[in-house]
């Protein structure tokens, strides 16, 4: 199989890569926190999150803290697997020579 084919198209964007990286090393991460770590706008983050959610790579939890809504995200099993495969493919691409 061509090595390039094993790269996941969903992770081509830096932001999606960033979101998944953060969720690989943290359990539940809040929207605001994610935004600050990635240093991007609300809208930008929301659209990438929607894409990852559609692929079932992340799951969403909405709750209320007092009167404020709080949205947090976590990587699903599928998401973790896909990210690891992508990471392995990246490593192979860099190391082959």
């Amino acid at each position: 199989m061509n090595l390039f084919q094993s790269l996941n198209k969903e992770f081509e964007s830096r932001i999606r890569l960033g979101i998944m990286s953060i969720l690989m090393v943290n359990e539940w991460v809040e929207f605001k926190e994610m935004k600050e770590t990635l240093d991007i706008t609300d809208g930008n983050l929301a659209s990438h999150i929607a894409a990852l959610e559609k692929n079932d790579y992340i799951e969403v939890k909405k709750e209320f803290v007092g009167k404020k809504p709080k949205t947090s995200y976590r990587a699903t099993k599928t998401g973790r697997k896909a990210f690891n495969l992508h990471l392995n493919a990246l490593e192979k691409l860099i190391n082959r020579k």
Partner: peptide, 10 residues
């Protein structure tokens, strides 16, 4: 980028 995001977030 992956490494830096993991680091920054943890």
């Amino acid at each position: 980028h992956i490494r830096s995001m993991m680091e920054r977030s943890s």
